[in-house]
């Protein structure tokens, strides 16, 4: 357990360093929304701008603001979002939920398709099926996501008119249709993920097949089906778990483009707008959450590794 404690401490150090770096980089962004307001409104004077900057604390050096922000955070205060004029938690809440829905659905779909494909391909390496899966896998990781998204909209929403083109629910009537609105963005994200999961699954299965215990099991006369399912698959799933766990944090904030194309108000969009609008509190909280998810994911992956694989009794 000491190992886990040290991992947690390391993760905290990473989070701290990241918040400092992001604060600094955002401070390095040229211009700021208040200067932008001066340009947009001829009646706004320099005095007005100075007053507003003081009001939002933007006139202080960023290191000082970062220190104050950290102090607040340690007291459990995330502060107010400057853009949304409400507490960060309140501004972030719905977006976290929306992203979690999108992420869970697309990850499930991607795995549901990718794992069987990877397993099937691994059973007959070099076969036609293997080649087809391989090609599909490469195709899925080689498409720009926004292009794929728009093509899905063109085909399924506009030409065939089967599915809504964007948004989360029907905005008219009773506001239903959540499921229908999920299909296209989930498909776009899942399609982009299938490739790597299928390839990893196949590689892991083939790797396991080379181990002695599988040969022994086969030699003992176990049915091939039983060997594959009971032994090979079980062990091959271990590396997959690691990969998925590591992927979660990235998906959490990295679905920005899918969210933009499908008008899905999630975390990617929220963080992007916060960064662009110098909303330090909101941007930092969003980024920290995403990073923390990756870190927790990797710790969980290690734990799972340790649990599932009796051969590994050593924490990496």
């Amino acid at each position: 357990m000491g190992v886990i404690l040290s991992r947690l401490l390391q993760s905290l150090a990473v989070l701290l360093a990241m918040s400092f770096a992001v604060y600094g980089l955002m401070g390095l962004m040229p211009g700021d929304p208040i200067d932008l307001m001066i340009a947009g409104d001829p009646h706004l004077t320099a005095a007005d701008a100075a007053r507003l900057k003081a009001l939002y604390g933007l006139d202080r050096p960023w290191t000082e603001r970062w220190a104050r922000w950290l102090g607040q955070l340690l007291q459990g205060e995330l502060g107010y979002s400057r853009l949304h004029a409400r507490p960060v938690i309140e501004a972030m809440g719905p977006a976290v939920l929306n992203t979690a829905t999108l992420m869970a659905a697309s990850l499930t779909l991607a795995l549901a398709i990718a794992l069987p494909l990877g397993i099937a391909a691994s059973l007959r390496p070099g076969s036609l099926l293997d080649g087809a899966v391989n090609l599909l896998a490469f195709a899925s990781v080689s498409l720009p996501v926004f292009w794929l998204g728009l093509m899905l909209i063109v085909v399924f929403a506009v030409e065939l008119a089967w599915l809504p083109a964007g948004g989360m629910t029907e905005v008219t009537g009773d506001g239903g249709g959540r499921l229908a609105h999920l299909v296209l963005p989930v498909s776009a994200l899942a399609l982009a993920g299938i490739g790597q999961y299928a390839r990893h699954m196949r590689a892991a299965m083939i790797n396991e097949a080379g181990h002695d215990y599988i040969r022994t099991a086969k030699a003992k006369g176990c049915s091939p089906r039983r060997v594959v399912l009971r032994h090979q698959l079980r062990n091959a799933l271990i590396p997959i778990t690691t990969i998925v766990a590591l992927e979660v944090g990235g998906l959490f904030s990295g679905a920005l483009i899918t969210e933009t194309v499908f008008a899905w108000p999630g975390m990617g969009r929220l963080i992007y707008d916060a960064v662009m609008g110098n909303d330090f509190n909101l941007a930092l909280s969003g980024l920290l959450l995403a990073t923390a998810m990756t870190l927790v994911g990797s710790i969980l992956a290690d734990l799972a590794y340790w649990r599932l694989d009796p051969r590994v009794r050593r924490m990496p």
Binding site: S11, A13, V14, A17, M18, V22, L25, M26, M29, L246, G249, G250, F252, S253, G254, L256, I257, G268, I271, Y272, V275, M276, A283, G286, L287, A290, T291, T294, L295, S298
Partner: peptide, 13 residues
């Protein structure tokens, strides 16, 4: 640490 950072938002910043 760098691997744990969310790639896209970081690139944007």
């Amino acid at each position: 640490g760098v691997m744990a950072l969310p790639l896209l938002p970081l690139l944007i910043v």
